[in-house]
Structures are given as structure tokens and as C-alpha cells.
């Protein structure tokens, strides 16, 4: 057994015993990263809000069954990822495919009209955000878990339920695309 104490797990166990303050502390630690992960993964604020609330609802409902055998963050992100996959399955193809790319290209036209223009920091962030949005769902999820949550390959594999090499492959493809988009 690892001697290190997962503070998240301790807080979760305390909440399961009725300590509401423990939950508030736990929530404060993860609310931002979880929300950003969901928002950038699903790309729709309304859906992100819904998934965010549902994720925490499941955490609350499962507090009695929580077993600190894995990192709390991994467990939390597994719940969020499962909800996200369900959301992908029923998502509306608004910005996917050629239409989405066309819409993004039209929005970026003014900047591309000046090829010699050195991209500002703001523009780079904007391009990165759009590039992430354009990634396939699995790659986008892997990149967000890596960049936003700073998870290891193994942890991403645990959250997404695939092998480590698959995660690595997805990340490679995704990051190459992102760099290409930023280099244009």
C-alpha cells in the first residue's frame, strides 16, 4: 500500500460519513478542471453544464460505494468520460465534418488574409482552441486529459478504458494536428 495519502480520497470518505465540508473542499479542488475538460470536450456550454452537474450527482449518489482503490481524479474523470461518450453518441452534427471545417475556415479568413502577419498570442490561443475542437472525439478527449488534467498515459488509459499504446497513438496524432494547425 502506498504510504502517500490521497487527500481527495480522504475528503470523499469524510463526505460519505456526512461531512459536507469535505465535499465542499473536494468540489473546490476539481470543479475548474472538470468543467474545462467537459466544456472543451463537448464544445457546448449548455451540454458542459449538464454533464458537469450530472457527474457530481453521480459522485454524490455513489459516495457510500466509493472505494479509494484508485485515484479520486481518475474515478471522477471516468464518470465524466462515460457521460461524455454518451453525449458524443447523441450529439448533433453541427460543427462536424466539412461544414464545421468550412465554418471555422470562414471565421479565420481575416487572419489568413495576412499570411505575413505574425500571430499574436491571442490568435495562437484561439487557433489552438479551434484545433482542439476539430479533433476527433477520442483524440480530443486524450489531449484534454493530458493537457488539462495532466494525467499520465496510464491514467488516461484507465479513464478512457483503452490500452496505454492506444492512448499514446491518439495523443501523437492529436498533437501533430494541433501543431500543424498552429504552424499554418
Amino acid at each position: 500500500m502506498d504510504t502517500a495519502v490521497d487527500e481527495d480520497a480522504t475528503l470523499m470518505l469524510a463526505y460519505a460519513q456526512g461531512d459536507l465540508g469535505a465535499f465542499e473542499a473536494l468540489y473546490a479542488r476539481h470543479r475548474g478542471t472538470l468543467y474545462r475538460f467537459l466544456l472543451r470536450a463537448c464544445r457546448q456550454p449548455a451540454v458542459a453544464d449538464e454533464l458537469f452537474q450530472e457527474t457530481w450527482s453521480r459522485v454524490i449518489a455513489a459516495r457510500e460505494r466509493y472505494q479509494p482503490q484508485a485515484k479520486f481524479t481518475t474515478w471522477l474523470l471516468q464518470i465524466a468520460h462515460n457521460l461524455l461518450v454518451d453525449s458524443y453518441r447523441r450529439k448533433r452534427p453541427t460543427l462536424d465534418g466539412e461544414a464545421g471545417e468550412l465554418a471555422i475556415a470562414q471565421m479565420e479568413a481575416p487572419a489568413q488574409e495576412q499570411p505575413e502577419h505574425a500571430l499574436s498570442d491571442f490568435e495562437q490561443r484561439r487557433r489552438l482552441q479551434r484545433a482542439i475542437e476539430q479533433l476527433p472525439d477520442e483524440q480530443r478527449t486524450a489531449v484534454l486529459l493530458r493537457l488539462e488534467q495532466e494525467l499520465s498515459l496510464e491514467e488516461i488509459a484507465d479513464v478512457t478504458g483503452v490500452g496505454r499504446e492506444t492512448v499514446k497513438s491518439r495523443l501523437r496524432y492529436a498533437m501533430n494536428k494541433l501543431r500543424e494547425q498552429l504552424a499554418e
Binding site: 500500500m1 502506498d2 479509494p68 485515484k71 499520465s152 491514467e155 501523437r172 498533437m175
Partner: peptide, 18 residues
């Protein structure tokens, strides 16, 4: 209690190009 420290995981993790 089995816990993971992110720093450990990331420190041993392979870094990807770029």
C-alpha cells in the same frame, strides 16, 4: 489506501514530441 501522486506518474511518463 492506494493512492497515486500525479507528479510521480507524470515524472515517469513519456513525453510526446512538442
Amino acid at each position: 489506501m492506494n493512492t497515486h501522486r500525479p507528479d510521480d506518474a507524470r515524472s515517469n511518463d513519456e513525453r510526446l514530441p512538442g
